[in-house]
């Protein structure tokens, strides 16, 4: 499929470029905006991978909520236009990242992946596109994990509130 390929390579360029921007751009506000671009590009990848539900959730949670929280947090930085400075670990960090990349690429290329049998491909595509299967799985096979995640979210919400609640003022 020509269209899919064009879209894929386009999205790859956008995603990688924006990700590089996030870690290299000095202006923290722009970095946050580029992060949103990364999120949206990943949502695009999800659509290509016939995971529509995930794509929408990605936009809703990452671009709609997490990015906004980060943008708000950016305001804590004193000098936002020059707030995204590197620390002294720049060179070692780059080396570690490059090494890991090499390993990952080697593994991805060298492994013999076992593809979905031709007979079942149609079926798999239908199951993956619809959101009903996912919903079924979440409340049957993965119900325990689902509940654990809800408890975690509740805990996180309460924890964040507790962290941010103003402590009673100490008398000077």
């Amino acid at each position: 499929m020509l269209l899919v390929d064009i879209t894929f390579w386009g999205l790859s360029v956008v995603a990688i470029g924006a990700a590089l921007g996030v870690v290299l751009v000095r202006d923290l506000f722009r970095a946050a905006l580029l992060l949103v671009v990364v999120f949206l590009a990943v949502a695009g990848f999800f659509v290509l991978l016939s995971a529509q539900f995930l794509a929408v959730v990605q936009v809703l949670i990452y671009a709609g909520a997490i990015a906004i929280l980060l943008v708000f947090a950016v305001m804590l930085t004193k000098d936002v236009p020059h707030g995204n400075l590197p620390n002294r670990l720049q060179v070692p960090a780059a080396m570690v990242a490059a090494l890991l990349l090499a390993v990952l690429v080697a593994v991805a290329a060298a492994t013999q992946w076992q593809p979905v049998p031709l007979a079942q491909q149609e079926q798999v595509a239908v199951v993956q596109t619809g959101s009903a299967g996912l919903a079924n799985l979440l409340v049957s096979d993965y119900a325990l994990a689902f509940e654990a995640v809800s408890v975690l979210l509740l805990g996180a919400a309460i924890g964040a509130l507790a962290l941010l609640r103003g402590r009673p003022e100490q008398a000077p």
């Binding site: 990700a19 996030v22 870690v23 923290l28 947090a73 995204n84 400075l85 960090a93 990242a97 890991l100």
Partner: peptide, 17 residues
Amino acid sequence: LFCIGLYGALARRNVIA
């Protein structure tokens, strides 16, 4: 993408970055 993120996580000074 993962390695770019890793580099950023290691080499940035700002917590939010």
